[in-house]
Write a protein that binds this DNA or RNA. Structure first.
Lengths: 233, 233
DNA sequence: ATCAGTAATAGTCATCATGACCAGAACACA
DNA sequence: TGTGTTCTGGTCATGATGACTATTACTGAT
């Protein structure tokens, strides 16, 4: 902790308020042929934790709302426009940053595959597989763990999975989302039965051609874009 | 909005960071003989929203963690020590306060009945039934609605109900907690079957004497005090 | 002392969701 | 033409749940 200021000094200053976001996308994986969970990180160019990877974020401007700040930070640092955005948690531990006390209101977001594919990687922005991130700056490993936990829970009781997919999709693609998020394989027939009982997806008359096997039917999501966060929408 | 400063003026100032808490307790109700959900509110003695009722809260001191700040504010304003405390949400809308922009990190808490009974009401601290609060200051009606939504969800999939109860309790008392929180009656026999299948409550050899009918057996909660918030504990 | 009333407790039954599993249909490729 | 794989529809056993019935054990009135 080279850059840790002494405690009484830090406590003179008012807490700084920052907004950060954990962003997930499903990307094709070289090894497994199945898509896996990835997330973009930005390299820190200043102390503390210089050259370590961190969540995209920045200070809250006085004239923007919290989700607007999250969206603007995403646009500025990674050029990504999320298909889903939800507040994750406010982290305010005293020792999160060795320099000054920082309270971070953290959002988590999902992006669709076409948006994620267009995003170019730079020297300071890179995609990482969610299951081996290495050492991140600050308490960001803990934050990502929590975001993953929320994602895994939410995918099971809400219709959030479709935020990972395009307008039309096969049931197998939906299953691949669940399998990538939950980290386990699901029975195709049983999974299919559940989706067909759901009211928020509808079959189209189109089939996905060009595959190696029987062409699967395409479906469309007909539910609300925001899967609902209680009275807050 | 008599006290609303003009917008450009407000936006010069940095956002203020506050901590508030929604506290729930189960209290006997005069009408229904069944206990109902109550929460303590504090009267505002200053503008804005002077004389309206509001959630207990205050600014975050630089040297305390977020849950510590919530706990201290509860102690200072209502003298209540919660048996459960969890972060609810960070509210940061631009127009939450007409004077200055305020970002509120809101917690929600439960208190046990003996603690709630000891709390004395004063001129500026009073208990209200959760189902008719009237007009509160700021956006606190919306915050209470969200806290109620979270409470109702969490009571169904976690063991949070025991935070409302003492060390030993009857199964009917647990059922009364569920009924008060969910706002509907539950079948005693089926409810009993579910609780007996749970692993985190154990039967004692004691019975509650003095009632009008067959004395019910007393049970004890054997699970963890913190029902778990994912990787954060 | 006896009986009525009510909660506490135990149990039954039909229904539904789920996991495991089987089988035919429809395609590409050798 | 056959083989392999996925897509799709189906069966079966199991467990959870809601509705319901019945017995037990107490208080309070007659």
């Amino acid at each position: 902790m080279v850059y840790s200021a002494n405690v009484s000094e830090r406590r003179q200053q008012p807490p700084e308020l920052a907004i950060s976001t954990v962003i997930f996308a499903l990307r094709p994986d070289a090894d497994s042929a199945r898509p896996t969970l990835w997330l973009p990180l930005v390299r820190r160019t200043r102390q503390p934790y210089r050259d370590l990877w961190a969540l995209p974020g920045g200070p809250l401007s006085p004239e923007e709302s919290l989700p607007d700040a999250a969206r603007r930070n995403l646009q500025d640092t990674t050029s990504l426009q999320p298909s889903y955005l939800e507040q994750l948690y406010a982290f305010g531990g005293l020792d999160r940053s060795p320099v000054q006390r920082v309270v971070s209101i953290v959002y988590w977001a999902l992006v669709k595959p076409d948006v994620a594919a267009l995003a170019r990687e730079t020297e300071n922005v890179r995609w990482f597989r969610a299951d081996h991130l290495g050492q991140l700056a600050f308490d960001h490993n803990q934050i990502v763990d929590y975001a993953l936990w929320r994602l895994r829970n939410k995918v099971e009781y809400s219709s959030i999975a479709y935020a990972f997919l395009g307008e039309k999709f096969t049931l197998a693609q939906v299953r691949e989302v669940y399998e990538a998020v939950l980290g386990k394989e699901l029975d195709p027939a049983n999974f299919r039965r559940q989706l067909r009982a759901a009211t928020d997806i509808a079959a189209t008359e189109e089939y996905l051609q060009g595959g190696r096997h029987r062409p699967p039917r395409l479906y469309r999501y007909t539910g609300s874009t925001s899967p609902g966060n209680g009275p807050l929408g």
